[in-house]
Computed example of a mutant assay.
Amino acid sequence: MADCARCHGRDHEGLAAPSIVGFARTQSRERFIAAVLDGDPPRGMPAYRGNALIENQIDAIYRYFAARADGSIAAGAMPGRESDEAPKLK
């Protein structure tokens, strides 16, 4: 199981490790996914390739952090809860 907040902070804005939100803001989808799946073990970021929980949800993980980066989802919001969903455009 991944506990991103343990290193990246409760709102994933950085703590002992850099901000995931900032990373999603500055990197391509492909680079983001590679960083999560391949990690950076020398710097303490574990690789999640082979972890079915992460691999099966990698697109949703990317979409969440991309939405956090562009402000569509607020820090602390829980996707899936109607009150926390991004507003729908008409």
Rank of each mutant, 00 (worst) to 15 (best):
H12Y: 14
G22M: 01
L89Y: 09
L89F: 09
I54E: 05
G80R: 09
R68Q: 10
D70A: 06
C4L: 12
E13W: 02
A2I: 12
A67G: 12
A47S: 11
F65S: 03
D38Y: 01
L89W: 08
R63I: 05
R29S: 07
K90P: 15
E85L: 11
G76P: 04
Y62R: 02
A74K: 13
K90D: 14
E13M: 10
Y64E: 12
P18F: 00
A66C: 07
A5T: 12
D40R: 06
C7I: 03
M78E: 15
P42G: 02
R29P: 04
Q27N: 13
A17W: 01
A34E: 14
Q27G: 06
D40V: 02
D11W: 03
R6P: 00
N56M: 08
M78A: 15
L15Q: 10
G14D: 01
S72W: 04
E13Y: 03
L15P: 00
D38R: 10
P87H: 10
D84Q: 06
D40I: 00
G9S: 07
D3C: 02
D11R: 09
R81K: 15
G22P: 01
V36L: 03
D38L: 07
A34T: 10
A67L: 12
A24M: 08
N56E: 15
D70Y: 02
G9F: 04
T26V: 13
A2V: 13
D84H: 14
A67Y: 05
Q57F: 08
S19E: 09
F65Y: 14
A35N: 06
R81A: 14
S83Q: 14
D40E: 13
A17L: 11
A24P: 03
I54Y: 03
P18N: 07
D70N: 15
P18Q: 05
H8S: 06
A77E: 05
N51A: 11
Y64N: 09
I58W: 03
L37Q: 12
E13G: 10
D38V: 00
Y48D: 00
A66G: 07
A35W: 00
P41Y: 01
A2K: 08
S19P: 04
D84M: 08
M1W: 13
L15V: 00
D40P: 00
E55I: 05
E13L: 13
E55T: 15
R6T: 12
A17S: 11
K90N: 11
S19V: 08
A86K: 13
A67P: 03
S83N: 09
A75K: 12
G9R: 05
R29T: 08
F23D: 02
R29A: 11
D38M: 04
G22H: 01
F32L: 06
A86Y: 05
G14W: 01
K88S: 08
D59C: 02
A34C: 01
M45H: 09
D11C: 01
E85I: 06
D70M: 07
M1Y: 14
A52F: 03
A2Q: 12
L15C: 00
I61Q: 03
I58N: 02
A34D: 10
E30I: 10
M45V: 09
G22C: 00
P79S: 08
A60K: 12
E82Q: 12
M45P: 07
A52I: 07
N51M: 09
G71C: 07
A69P: 02
A75N: 11
G50A: 08
I73L: 15
K88E: 14
A16E: 13
G71P: 07
